[in-house]
Design a protein around this nucleic acid. Structure first.
Lengths: 198, 198
DNA sequence: GGTTTTCATTGAACTAGTTCAATCGTTTTT
DNA sequence: AAAAACGATTGAACTAGTTCAATGAAAACC
């Protein structure tokens, strides 16, 4: 039953960026679709077109790119409660996606499709600002990620990950953290061994 | 004299994302300040607050981060004619910037300060959309950069750079390309040597 | 026009991180 | 409860990329 769904987290997300009235909030919420995903299920598979912006109410997913040449996955982001996920390019241009998005835990999600989002922008243009500010935030995070990739050693990247995403290392297998950091699982294991000795 | 300044490129930038009337264009243009920068001058120095969004009419700049620990510069982006540059975080939050932005050639620029930009958004909210779409584009580019950093070898990154930014390698010293790719200048030289032999 | 600074190249020694293969504990599946 | 799949660890051999130092060429500077 729709009335059971808790929209407080997603409204908190919006109100973090813009002020909205109850009426605007109701309209926004009416556009959202609730969805569950079991661990290991795909929210998006590469080559499919990404049809939704998805807000994570509960759970954790990975956005990753598969390098078939070398048979390796590269994780772009782990996304958890309170954040939005999609293949931005695929969603915006309606082109086949280059990313996979896969549940690492059982998830509860809220989705917004392309036409609903455009309707939202037309009805209440202030939501453009909200969307812009989210992209601004993501820009800053990606830039920080690029700087760290360029300047830190494997060990430094791992320590930075632990402090930037506290608690996440308990929810995610170690070899996936390695795929996020851009090192091999074996090398991550050796880094941890070295840290344990210290 | 102000009438000499050519705003066609910056208006083309806006109209690439949204439709605007001549009146809106005039208002937008009235907010811009023209500025020149000589080669090696700084548009922004780390620890200063970034006061402007800057559009590049002519020239080339580098956005980079200095790692004082290891005495190394890491280049985030080269930005050329037709693109906007700033330290996004510093500009948005009015905090000291972590980046330097430096002219690699003599530059002609158009600048928009924080209050002018907010006035623009208030007067014509459709410019929020323009700004959002630019961030969307930058998000896609940064994500692509992250994937390449994680998955490509030095040689592959260099070849990708040449094909992604054709012509740029002639405008930029080689060791700066190395600082962008995340390899040493010596290693880039060896990559080129190897490519020349093939 | 000569000098200084900046930039690219090359080689030799080195190291951070990879690869491969084996082992072992822990979930998951049936 | 057994079997299968998955995940972390360890070691030995390897390689992509670094570091340091020397050399030469070309800009930039006075």
């Amino acid at each position: 039953m729709k009335s059971e769904i808790d929209h407080s987290l997603v409204l908190k997300n919006v109100r973090n960026y813009i002020n909205i009235t109850d009426e605007e909030a109701d309209f926004f919420v009416s556009l959202l679709t609730y969805r569950r995903l079991k661990k290991k299920q795909f929210l998006l598979q590469a080559y499919d077109v990404c049809k939704y912006e998805t807000f994570i109410v509960k759970g954790c997913l990975k956005e990753y790119f598969t390098d078939y040449e070398n048979d390796k996955d590269h994780i772009i982001r782990f996304v958890t409660e309170g954040t939005w996920t999609s293949d931005v390019e695929s969603f915006a241009k309606e082109t086949p996606s280059s990313l996979n998005i896969e549940a690492m835990e059982d998830c509860e999600l809220l989705q917004l499709d392309y036409s609903s989002l455009e309707l939202l922008f037309q009805t209440y243009p202030k939501f453009e600002r909200w969307c812009r500010l989210i992209f601004e935030k993501n820009y800053i995070e990606f830039q920080s990620r690029i700087i760290k990739n360029l300047s830190l050693s494997g060990k430094e990247k791992y320590l930075d990950f632990l402090s930037e995403y506290p608690g996440l290392s308990n929810r995610i297998p170690q070899h996936q953290i390695a795929a996020y950091l851009g090192i091999t699982p074996e090398f991550l294991s050796k880094i941890r061994q070295q840290l344990a000795r210290e």
